[in-house]
């Protein structure tokens, strides 16, 4: 978990740093110095237009993390209230919400993302929406599951007897107790979001040029693997690094909360 937290914090710092500074301008084209191997000036080499790969990767961090973060916010923002409502009300709202969830789960996530981008055109925004939609049922399901258990507990019973409404109980008693599960889920969805964003950009449906993006760098590198193999190496390593970090963090958080729940 410490490793995971370390990687995640590093990535966030790099993303912030890249907003104000990169070693070289990630958009600066310099054909005379194209496809260079890693060197002291260009640590990760240069691409087919002579752009500095390290700078492009750094600049691509906020795109990747940004898309995944906003998508998680969308998912949590819609999914958590739905899940709370379903658990609090039961009956037909619950049935509708859960069937709606099933419906969304029936779509392979990538496919819906492709359908959405096909209709609204590619771009970071459509990628966010496409990934975000898939986070909604995930959060709704986790929230509902957790909330159902909490509704059976003494403190919610007490609050009901005290005359509090379902809405107030959901917000004041149920939600705070779900925060740890939701945090774990958010971390997992974040890592899935980074993967999904990379996949969409790879097929050209994510962020559009000149905005740097890890997935698109891999796509562009693919026709050049015979000339410059390292070009395809670094963006992939960075994606693995980011996803691995978030996964480790998520696993670590879950273990910690599980232990707390058991001992507490």
């Amino acid at each position: 978990m410490i490793i995971g937290a370390f990687i995640t914090v590093t990535l966030v710092l790099i993303a912030l740093l890249a907003l104000v500074w990169t070693p070289l301008d990630p958009g600066a084209i310099d054909i005379a110095h194209k496809l260079l191997s890693p060197s002291a000036v260009h640590w990760f080499g240069t691409d087919q237009l002579g752009r500095d790969v390290l700078s492009m990767l750094m600049a691509g961090t906020h795109n990747s993390l940004g898309v995944a973060c906003v998508a998680v916010l969308i998912g949590a923002g819609c999914g958590v209230p739905l899940g709370l409502w379903a658990a609090a009300r039961g009956g037909w709202p619950e049935e509708i919400i859960m069937r709606g969830n099933d419906l969304l789960f029936a779509f392979p996530s990538l496919l819906l993302a492709i359908l959405i981008t096909a209709v609204w055109g590619p771009g970071a925004l459509t990628a966010i929406i496409a990934i975000g939609i898939f986070n909604v049922p995930v959060f709704a399901r986790v929230t509902r599951g957790g909330a159902l258990g909490l509704w059976q507990r003494d403190f919610t019973m007490a609050a009901r007897i005290a005359g509090k409404g379902r809405f107030a109980i959901s917000v004041e008693h149920v939600l705070p107790n779900l925060s740890s599960i939701l945090l774990v889920q958010a971390t997992i969805q974040l890592s899935l979001g980074v993967l999904a964003e990379a996949g969409l950009s790879y097929v050209g449906l994510g962020a559009q040029p000149p905005e740097p993006s890890w997935g698109r760098m891999l796509n562009e590198a693919q026709t050049l693997t015979a000339l410059s193999p390292t070009l395809a190496l670094f963006p992939g390593l960075v994606i693995v690094f980011a996803v691995l970090g978030l996964n480790l963090l998520g696993d670590g958080l879950r273990d910690r909360f599980d232990r707390k729940l058991r001992s507490g």
């Binding site: 996949g199 891999l218 590198a221 395809a232 994606i239 693995v240 691995l244 996964n247």
Partner: peptide, 22 residues
């Protein structure tokens, strides 16, 4: 398995091409 989950399948594909095809 931890690594396997973190590797995007399309990048794995590119690496396989690099090693076995090129």
């Amino acid at each position: 398995t931890q690594l396997g989950i973190a590797i995007p399948n399309f990048w794995l594909g590119i690496l396989l091409i690099l090693v076995f095809a090129i």
